[in-house]
Every structure is written in C-alpha cells, then in structure tokens.
C-alpha cells in the first residue's frame, strides 16, 4: 500500500491565503511558468526537460515490425509512461496510479490522436512491414505539472529523432544502419503542447499556471488545454473538480495560446542550436540521401 504524504493544514491554508493576495510560495506570478530548460542527448531522440524541480526524460526509438491487420497502411506509434519509485517513493512499479493513467491518456489524446506524427509515412511495405515508433517517458523528479513537462519532452524527442534510412528496389526493402546511411527525421505535421491550469478558491475563481506539487495537492480543480502555435486545439480536459465560470475558461485558453507560442519558439531555437552543433563541418547537406522536391 503506497504511503501518500499529505500537506499539513497549515500549508493548505497558507497557500490559499497567499493566492488570495496574488502571492505564490516561490514568488512567481499566477500565470508564470517555472524556468523551462530543454537539453538533447548525444544520440537522436533523447530529450531532457526541466521545469523547476520537475524533470522528465523522453526517448524515441523505432524498429521495423508488422503493421496491425486492420490498418495495413499505417505504422505503429506508442507512448509509454511508466512511473517508477524514482518519481516518488509512493509510486510502485507495475501498479498504475491515477496520476499515471491520466498522464498517459492526456499524452495519447494530445500527440497521437491529433495526428502530430504522420503514421502513413511510417508504412514500408503495405500490410507486411512498417515502422513502429515508441516514445518512453521517464519522470526523474516530480514537483508538479508532469503533464506539461511530459508533453513538451515527447514532442521534442520526436522532432529530434532520426529513423534509419530505407530504400525499396525491385520489391526488396533495405534498411540501412546508421553506419551506412545518415538517418532521416520523422514526418512531423504540427507540434501540440499542453497547458495545465489549476483552480483555487470556493468558486474556482483563482486560476494558476504550472502548479508545484504542493499547489497540486491543494487545488480544487484543474483543466488541461492542448493546442499548437496556430491556435488549433487538440483537446480540453477538465476532469471533475469545482465548477469554473465558462468565460474564465475561455480566457484561460487564450492565455494558453500565448504560452504555447513561447514554448514553440523555445523548442525551435533549441532544435536549431543542436543541429548546428552536430553539423560542425557543414556536411549534413551532402550526407542527406533524399532529393529536394
């Protein structure tokens, strides 16, 4: 039986009292995110995201496999989030908690169902061979707002990932190893990001962005909005909690768009820096095997 640590009455009352005066325990504004850092690993497809004390590591990998029988023209794309006791000693391996189920469901809806990754491009031989792309999400440290950090990490990992190059000649499929041909990026359509709002107060009138673990324990309700920088909403999830005024919810969505644009710009910048770092001799353009269409 996992032992949950509850915050004291003192802390609960204080967090609410402080919020009523527009004050947060770490001195942030109500709609301010903690410093967000994105780092890539040595190999392609590893993204390390730090959001304050929350740390999430996402790793994307791909292998050739047989497609599903009811979808012969599509590749396979899965996101695995298994929380371990590293996240917190109250999590056990192989025993999914509510946090884990919600996290995995939100990532599923945001990244998979919205068609961010073009699964048709993962098909190699219709009905026989296709790519199976898998993203493993590891939460190294949990201080609140796992959803936003995990979604950011998953998107960054997929955009950073390179799958082995393939070629089809006379019905024979050749998959090249990284030593033979430079790997190629995935076919990426749009980058969705999650923004989670937490509500406090009797009528849920105080809305706060990027809650820490303590704030999450004290909140009355929450709402996660997933959208991309063009303002296209992938999903909105408000799972229970105190009822919130509809107009306030719309305002939350528009502030979310501003934040998503900032995220998008940060990710583009970090990806470009990483590409430049790897491409020191300027050979990347020559090593690419596909033509400019």
């Amino acid at each position: 039986m996992p032992r949950e640590v509850e915050p004291s009455l003192n802390e609960r009352q204080f967090v609410l009292q402080a919020l009523q005066e527009n004050l947060r325990l770490d001195g942030r504004e109500l709609d301010q995110y903690r410093p967000l850092e994105l780092n890539f690993g040595e190999e392609y497809g590893v993204a390390d995201v730090t959001l304050g004390k929350t740390r999430v590591l996402a790793k994307a990998t791909a292998e050739v496999t047989v497609p599903y029988t009811d979808r012969p023209l599509d590749g396979i794309f899965t996101i695995a989030t298994e929380l371990s006791p590293m996240t917190s000693p109250s999590f056990e391996v192989n025993r999914p908690t509510e946090t884990e189920v919600l996290l995995s469901r939100l990532l599923e809806k945001t990244v998979r169902r919205s068609g961010a990754l073009d699964t048709e491009s993962l098909c190699l031989v219709a009905g026989q061979k296709c790519w199976s792309v898998r993203v493993d999400v590891h939460v190294l440290s949990h201080d609140g707002n796992l959803i936003d950090a995990a979604c950011f990490a998953v998107v960054a990992a997929l955009r950073h990932f390179r799958k082995p190059d393939t070629s089809m000649e006379a019905g024979v499929l050749t998959v090249y190893t990284p030593a033979e041909r430079e790997p190629v990026p995935l076919s990426w359509l749009h980058s969705p990001f999650c923004v989670t709002w937490s509500f406090f107060g009797e009528d849920g009138e105080i809305a706060v962005l990027d809650a820490t673990w303590l704030e999450e324990q004290v909140r009355m309700g929450s709402c996660t909005v997933s959208l991309n920088k063009h303002g296209e909403i992938c999903q909105i999830a408000k799972l229970g909690g105190t009822p919130v005024d509809a107009v306030a919810l719309l305002q939350c969505t528009s502030v979310a768009l501003t934040k998503v644009k900032e995220f998008s710009e940060l990710m583009d910048r970090r990806l470009a820096e990483d590409l430049k770092r790897r491409d020191k001799g300027g050979f990347m353009a020559q090593l690419r095997a596909d033509n400019d269409r």
Binding site: A62, E63, S132, P178
Partner: peptide, 13 residues
Amino acid sequence: EHSPENDYVNTKL
C-alpha cells in the same frame, strides 16, 4: 539514460 550504440546493427526495441 544512454548506452553506447552499435552503429553496425539496427536497434531492436
């Protein structure tokens, strides 16, 4: 977090 890749073999997941 990272193990050295064998560049001569494709990864199996």
